[in-house]
Design a binder for these strands. Structure first.
Lengths: 128, 128
DNA sequence: CTAGGTGATAGAGTGCACTCTAGGTCAAGC
DNA sequence: GCTTGACCTAGAGTGCACTCTATCACCTAG
């Protein structure tokens, strides 16, 4: 059976992270040290895509890179870190819930403002 | 009738922006040039609080400072910029709607993961 | 009258998260 | 056999958005 392996360029293309960023992520510990081929080039399995997608989510919710690294490190340590990981995620989850609420409110504010602008434009258009 | 005026420290306290940040915002044009008292100190009216609250919202939705300044400049120019302002807000509004949807999804992902962690912790706790 | 607190300026410094450069290796196709 | 393109490393550079420092002016309470 064929095992799907990827070079760094392919991972970059599939995840949207740049090649530079992927190497940077490995250096800081956000990606585990990658297997290399005979020529010293990184070889990735398909799992890395799942992990990077999750990392992207953590990034999108505003988790600073330091905490993403911390999470990655705990993940690498295995089951003994589960409760600590849960706590970390819980903190960000609660914060995220608040932010989603606040952003929804802002969405309403923007809609109201846009409506006002549309009305104003119409009135100006008619009166001038 | 008493007119409520504020010094910069009071504005800072009420808005959550630091005094440094408020002066910085004025320098880059995010705040209009402020009136000064006899001693050269900035004197603010109550309107600035409303504006800063809105600026904070624009910041929270991820509008870069350059666009916030652009918006502030257009606002200072008056009605002739209304349609341009509407367009700018519309762009960020649409982007925001997508982000809110994506963040809600992430909220579900986090909840699922947290649940998994709780289950895992329980099983480990029982089996060890 | 002086000490403390708040205000002012110009400009330097900080932290984050990449992003890019220089200089090199290596395998494949013409 | 040589060019091309994807990969490698170490380390410098970038852009954003503040944040702080040094130094000075002003006003009020004790």
């Amino acid at each position: 059976m064929m095992v799907t392996v990827m070079m760094i360029g392919e991972v970059a293309e599939k995840t949207g992270f740049s090649v530079h960023t992927l190497r940077y992520y490995e250096k800081i510990g956000l990606l585990p040290e990658t297997l290399r081929d005979a020529g010293g080039r990184r070889v990735y399995g398909p799992d890395v895509l799942v992990w990077l997608e999750f990392v992207e989510r953590l990034k999108q919710i505003g988790m600073p890179i330091r905490d993403r690294v911390r999470y990655a490190e705990m993940r690498a340590l295995g089951d003994s870190t589960i409760s600590e990981r849960r706590e970390l995620l819980q903190t960000y989850r609660d914060d995220l819930a608040k932010r989603v609420a606040s952003l929804s409110e802002t969405l309403d504010v923007l809609d109201a403002k846009i409506t006002t602008y549309e009305t104003a434009a119409k009135c100006n258009g008619a009166s001038r």
